[in-house]
Design a protein around this nucleic acid. Structure first.
Length: 589
RNA sequence: GGUCCCGUAGCUCAGCUGGAUAGAGCAACUGACUUCUAAUCAGUAGGUCACAGGUUCGAAUCCUGUCGGGAUCACCA
């Protein structure tokens, strides 16, 4: 479709210039798809030209349309100020055929760039939850989409493996753990460590309550509770390289990593490189000196260092504490610089929730002020929180949806549904479990990815298991049915292909030809939702077609051959699009 | 209080850089399985695009304000 549009844009410029003179020629011409209720495929809005033509919109449209008739444009009509053009069947078929035999369904960028995508970025004191799931799925899909348009993609996570939160788990394990391990308990490592984080919190709160009874203020109690004092002490020991603490830290982190990796694997996401905060937390301090020497940062009389961003509508922000230690912002500055040194990249996408919008606004502003050329290539892929029907997820209230539990529940839901429909009756046991996995995850991923990332979303476990309507399994099902057709067709493929096309087939071809531009659009916007919505539309169209026109049972072999060809390209696009979303396409379901 | 994001059908969401009578799915109601997989399809019903102004040939979309929801503004991470 893109080639038709660019041909037409050129033609329209030419025509406008001929008719109304060169100053009437617009910079760019935006085409829109003709609405269903009108005849035509592409529509040019002619209102902008009436001031040059000095004629009515209808007359203007008609005289432009007249001159556009060609092998590409077979017909036109004008309704009010809208010039509707009909693309010639031969042109559509030609484009269809060239896409059919193309290596890639998506056109590659002429000038690809290097893109690093950061996602997940967990803390190591508790297991992954629903929020991480949205994060991972988004980051993974965005990476796929960037890759699809031809960019080089590096996927990374930064693991927050140090700090007071880890020490809390460590301390609780030391005090109350009785030497429990993932092996001895059979628990996943991340869940085991998370358990001790909860234990710490409970014991800590008890201490706070006791201290408050003794007359201390809330703040004092929180600060002076023996457990908190001990945790802070442990953090200090860790920073001083205390062997015993370090060993405990390493051991428990290893448990967590094993657990995370299992979850990542089930989700189907992976990373090219892990950054660890324990390696990077000291980065950025040297940048502070540079900034001071350039007079971008200021040192206060107490020794703390600040940047003043009030000139661009932001605040004054701390970069170095009075005692010379760095803050999150400083680390992130250092890490960004490091990444552009480590890799040949032009862009860096941070997949992080929208509660950190301000943080990234400031981070990017600072790096820009410091004069880094690449600062314009930084992008915060900000996404909204995931709520439950009962409201907000709060770890305090224990209504956090655990990622592992969620995946299991989705697989079970898929299994129940599949069994009750008898869809897997003839399958081998391993084939079945694989199918349940594919469907369950397909439902989960699609449910989350179909929503615009920046929107806050409600996750309803029951609805997400739904397999009807705008869902992953609905799309997978269409793919499976086409595969079944292609299997059955086997030998009856005729070399002769009918060239008559039905209205529904025209509509399908047009949708198919849009795929590449949709992927490019999704890449520009970093929005997998665009691909999800496109695919749903394609599938809806195809299902209507499938239901109303017999593909195999047909008197004319050449018609069957054409319909199979059309179906198989639809299937390839479904599979390609779902793969971009990280969703598998089962051959049977 | 400052800044940012969101507000579209009962529910969950589309609506591209402004374009024609605002679209899907779910739920509700009608129909279609001796026929390529009915996890499907065809149809009915459902709207003051939060509200009020403004910009213009034309606004759900852009601007301003109001209301509602959320986030953020720590020498926490």
């Amino acid at each position: 479709m893109e080639n038709i549009k660019s041909y037409l844009s050129k033609a329209v410029r030419q025509v406008i210039s001929e008719l109304y003179g060169s100053e009437a020629v617009p910079q760019s011409i935006d085409w829109q798809l003709t609405r269903k209720e009108f005849e035509g495929d592409l529509t040019l809005v002619v209102f902008p030209y009436t001031r040059y033509s000095k004629k009515s919109p209808e007359a203007t449209g008609a005289e432009i349309g007249e001159k556009l008739l060609s092998e590409v444009i077979s017909d036109f009509n004008v309704v009010k100020g809208f010039l509707n053009l009909k693309i010639a069947d031969t042109q559509l078929l030609q484009d269809f055929n060239s896409l059919f035999s193309a290596d890639s369904l998506v056109e590659k960028l002429e000038q690809p760039v290097g893109v690093m995508v950061e996602y997940s970025s967990p803390n190591t004191n508790k297991p992954l939850h629903l929020g991480h799931v949205r994060n991972c799925l988004l980051g993974w899909a965005v990476g796929n989409i960037q890759q699809a348009v031809g960019n080089r993609v590096t996927r990374v996570q930064i693991i927050n493996d140090r700090g007071i939160h880890i020490c809390k788990s460590m301390l609780a394990w030391q005090r109350f753990g009785n030497g429990e391990t993932p092996e001895s308990t059979g628990m996943k490592g991340d869940h085991l460590v998370g358990k001790y984080y909860v234990i710490f919190d409970q014991a800590y709160r008890k201490e706070i309550a006791e201290l408050k009874d003794q007359g201390l203020s809330e703040e004092q109690a929180k600060d002076e509770a023996p457990l908190m004092v001990a945790a802070r002490e442990m953090l200090k020991q860790w920073e001083n390289g205390d062997a015993e603490v370090f060993q405990l830290w390493e051991m428990m982190n290893e448990w967590v990593y094993a657990g995370f990796n299992e979850t990542y694997q089930r989700m189907g996401v992976s990373f090219d490189k892990n950054y660890y905060e324990s390696d990077t937390y000291k980065l950025g301090k040297s940048l502070v000196d540079v900034g001071i020497s350039k007079d971008i940062f200021q040192r206060d009389s107490d020794g703390s260092v600040w940047i003043d961003l009030t000139d661009i509508g932001l605040d004054r922000k701390l970069l170095l504490r009075r005692d010379g230690t760095s803050v999150y912002m400083t680390q992130d500055m250092g890490t960004a610089v490091q990444r552009f040194e480590d890799y040949d990249i032009d862009r860096l996408i941070y997949t992080v929730g929208n509660e950190q919008d301000y943080h990234f606004q400031v981070l990017f502003a600072i790096l820009k002020k410091m004069g880094y050329q690449w600062a314009d290539g930084l992008f915060h892929l900000s996404y909204g929180m995931v709520d439950l029907p009962s409201g907000k997820m709060k770890s305090r209230e224990g209504n956090v949806v655990d990622a592992d539990d969620l995946i299991t529940a989705m697989e079970l839901g898929a299994q129940e549904m599949t069994e009750s429909l008898g869809k897997a009756d003839g399958m081998e046991p391993t084939e079945r479990t694989d199918l349940y996995r594919q469907i369950g995850l397909g439902a989960l991923k699609y449910f989350i990815l179909k929503v615009d990332p920046k929107k806050r979303m409600t996750f309803n476990p029951e609805e997400s298991i739904d397999l009807q309507g705008n869902t992953g399994p609905f799309i997978q099902y269409t793919y499976a049915r086409i595969q079944s057709l292609l299997r059955k067709a086997g030998e009856i493929k005729s070399l002769e292909i009918s060239s008559e096309i039905l209205h529904e087939e025209r509509e399908l071809i047009k949708q198919i030809l849009r795929y590449s531009e949709v992927v490019h659009h999704a890449a520009r916007e970093n929005s997998p939702a665009l691909i999800a919505n496109y695919t749903f539309d394609l599938v809806k169209m195809y299902n209507g077609y499938y239901q109303n026109h017999s593909i195999l049972r047909n008197d004319d072999a050449s018609v069957t051959a054409w319909r199979l060809r059309l179906s198989s390209l639809v299937a390839r696009i479904i599979r390609d699009a779902l793969a971009l979303l990280g969703i598998e396409s089962p051959n049977k379901m």
